[in-house]
């Protein structure tokens, strides 16, 4: 009886422990995007000043598309990373921000005080965010010169990650 209980217990516990060991090492927020490796949905949006930006016009250069908001603390933390990235890769990589569920007034104030690393595009009805499968802010999609999404970064973009991804594309 004890032996049977031990075997049955092991049959239940061992797979559970293995499952936990594999799963706990992963970031629960990092959900694989089915869009990686696929053509980036192209969009036309206006920035806060009414200037129109078309993703299709960036074809030929890699694009960093960052979904962000002022209420999102990690977005505030990663802002300097994107600022320095945009400066470093100016002319070679386009940096584009898509405002994720935020007020234009808040964005305007944020950009005025902290600077802009690219256009802050307003996404009416969150159509673009839905097309990119955005779960929350910040999320960053890296699009190569051919218009294919090569990577999605969930959460903060680190300078190292930016350097690695863009280094491979340039």
């Amino acid at each position: 009886m004890n032996r049977t209980a031990l075997v049955l217990g092991a049959l239940l516990v061992v797979p559970l422990l293995l499952f936990l060991a594999v799963s706990l090492g992963k970031d629960p927020r990092a959900i694989d995007s089915p869009l990686v490796g696929k053509e980036a949905p192209t969009f036309t949006l206006e920035d806060l000043e009414g200037r129109v930006y078309q993703l299709a016009a960036s074809r030929g250069r890699p694009v960093v598309i960052n979904f962000w908001a002022t209420w999102c603390q990690p977005c505030v933390v990663e802002h300097p990373v994107l600022l320095s990235g945009a400066r470093r890769y100016a002319g070679r990589v386009d940096f584009v921000g898509v405002v994720y569920q935020d007020e234009p007034a808040a964005i305007r104030q944020f950009v005025a005080t902290r600077g802009a690393w690219g256009p802050s595009l307003i996404d009416p009805g969150s159509r673009v965010a839905i097309a990119y499968g955005v779960y929350g802010a910040p999320e960053t999609f890296i699009v190569n010169a051919e218009g294919t999404i090569v990577e999605k970064v969930t959460g903060l973009v680190t300078p190292q990650a930016l350097e690695r991804i863009l280094g491979e594309l340039l």
Binding site: P41, F43, T44, E46, V52, P124, A131
Partner: peptide, 14 residues
């Protein structure tokens, strides 16, 4: 000037 070729949002239906 505006670069607008259509309505704002996605260029093509998904």
């Amino acid at each position: 000037q505006t670069g607008a070729s259509g309505p704002l949002g996605l260029d093509a239906p998904r």
